[in-house]
Amino acid sequence: MALIHPTAIVDPKAEIAEGVEIGPYAVIGPNVKIGAKTQIGAHTVVEGCTTIGQENKIGHFASVGGAPQDMKYRGEPTQLIIGDRNMIREFTTLHTGTIQDQGITKIGNDNWIMAYVHIAHDCVVGNNTIFSNNAQIAGHVHVDDHAILGGMSGVHQFVRIGEHSMIGGASKLVQDLPPYVIASGPIAEPHGLNAEGLKRRGFNPETITALKQAYKLLYKEGLSFEDAKKAIASLADQKQSTEAQTAEKLRIFHDFIAASQRGIAR
Rank of each mutant, 00 (worst) to 15 (best):
L211R: 05
R262T: 01
A259Y: 01
E18Y: 00
E18Q: 09
L3T: 15
I104P: 11
P12A: 13
T78C: 15
I107H: 11
E18P: 01
G23W: 00
A115N: 14
P179I: 04
E206Y: 12
I81N: 09
I22Q: 08
M114K: 03
R251F: 06
G168H: 07
H164I: 01
S241C: 10
G66Q: 12
G169C: 09
G139N: 01
Y215P: 05
G108K: 03
V181T: 13
E189I: 14
I113W: 07
K13S: 14
N56D: 00
K33P: 08
E15R: 13
D145E: 15
A233I: 13
I81G: 07
I28W: 00
Y25H: 15
R89N: 11
D176F: 06
L193Y: 07
N31V: 12
K212G: 10
A62C: 13
Y25F: 15
K249Y: 15
L211P: 05
Q240G: 03
G151H: 10
R74H: 10
K216E: 09
G126D: 05
A8Q: 07
S153D: 09
S241P: 04
T44C: 11
G154E: 13
P205V: 00
R262I: 03
E243V: 10
I34L: 08
F61N: 09
L217D: 12
G66K: 04
E189Q: 15
K239N: 13
A115D: 13
I34V: 13
K249D: 07
G97I: 02
T98E: 04
E21I: 06
D255E: 07
A265L: 05
H142N: 14
P178R: 01
R262N: 13
F158A: 00
K57W: 10
A14D: 03
K57F: 14
L80C: 15
S224D: 11
L218E: 00
I22H: 10
